[in-house]
């Protein structure tokens, strides 16, 4: 008997969905768009965080030295650098070595640099690493003070910029999501309202025959849930394949950028999309039934 009733709920919900097909499509579409925005902003934030923490952990300080320092001073300087708080390793890079490194990073276009060997413009330098990423700025400041140091460079601003980007993505993503989410909820409420209106006679008959509130409302609730879940599912599938192809492309053309690719976090995002769709659908139905179906 319970199975008959459940079957009845689904049949009625399906009938309504088909009867108001254009509204159904519009509501599903709105949910898909809102959830696509939600999904991509979440993935973007996750990835920017990942890249930022990658950068932080690989941050090193390059200490460019004045030209023409004596060997004795160089050795002394290395000791002084090691003495700066937070410094974990120091590596001397000769100007010849620096030019080699530069050529290497130019790859097949290295001939552009030919001829520089005679009058190498690059200075000698020390590559300094710190024990923790957040020690970089203070260590860099102290390194600047040392005698014989020309310039100190590290990824100033890069990390800060990335984190600022996540901040804005989060704000605008949330805003867009809120606006579209409200639109989706209202569209579903309208869809359900149309279904209630189309079946008001039948609802009256059901009440006359002693149908409980749950029995009258359930098909409409189910209708909203189906819309929400469908939207969530389509958005999740689109994000899934879209992100997989993005990962692929990045892997081939930008191999040094490491994106979030563990399936656990991705499936969590997809699950959240499905859940959000369900929530939107249920909320829309509930609002509509509350207002238009006084049982």
């Amino acid at each position: 008997m319970i199975i008959n009733t459940i079957f009845y709920y689904f049949r009625e919900a399906a009938t309504s969905l088909i009867r108001n097909s254009w509204l159904t499509v519009a509501s599903v579409g709105t949910i898909i768009i809102s959830l696509l925005i939600l999904g991509s902003s979440v993935l973007l934030v996750l990835n920017v965080r990942e890249v930022a923490s990658d950068l932080e952990s690989s941050l090193e300080i390059t200490v460019f030295l004045d030209d023409g320092l004596e060997q004795e001073r160089l050795e002394q300087l290395e000791e002084e650098i090691k003495f700066v708080p937070g410094v974990s390793s120091v590596n001397f890079v000769t100007k010849e070595q620096a030019l080699e490194n530069l050529k290497e990073s130019f790859g097949d276009k290295a001939e552009l640099l030919s001829g520089l060997e005679k009058d190498n413009p690059l200075p000698n330098s020390y590559t300094v690493k710190t024990r923790e990423a957040n020690m970089v700025p203070s260590a860099a400041r102290q390194l600047t003070e040392l005698e014989g140091v020309d310039q100190v460079r590290y990824g100033q601003g890069v990390v800060e910029n990335l984190l600022a980007l996540t901040h804005w993505v989060r704000i605008w993503g949330t805003l867009a999501l809120l606006v579209l989410g409200v639109a989706a909820v209202l569209l579903i409420a309208t869809t359900i309202r149309m279904s209630v209106f189309a079946r008001r006679r039948e609802i009256g008959i059901m009440k006359m025959l002693g149908a409980t509130n749950i029995f009258v409302r359930m098909p409409f609730m189910l209708e909203g849930m189906i819309i929400g879940l469908t939207g969530g599912f389509v958005a999740a599938v689109m994000i899934h394949f879209g992100y997989a192809s993005l990962l692929n492309k990045v892997m081939i053309s930008l191999p040094f950028i490491h994106l979030v690719d563990d399936s656990n976090s991705i499936y969590q995002v997809l699950g959240a999309l499905l859940g959000a769709g369900f929530l939107i659908g249920t909320l829309g139905s509930a609002i509509s039934l509350r207002r238009f179906l006084k049982v």
Binding site: M1, I2, N4, T5, Y8, I205, M206, L209, G210, A211, F215
Partner: peptide, 8 residues
């Protein structure tokens, strides 16, 4: 329908 509604 009258019976379905009451879960017969």
């Amino acid at each position: 329908f009258a019976l379905e509604i009451i879960g017969a």
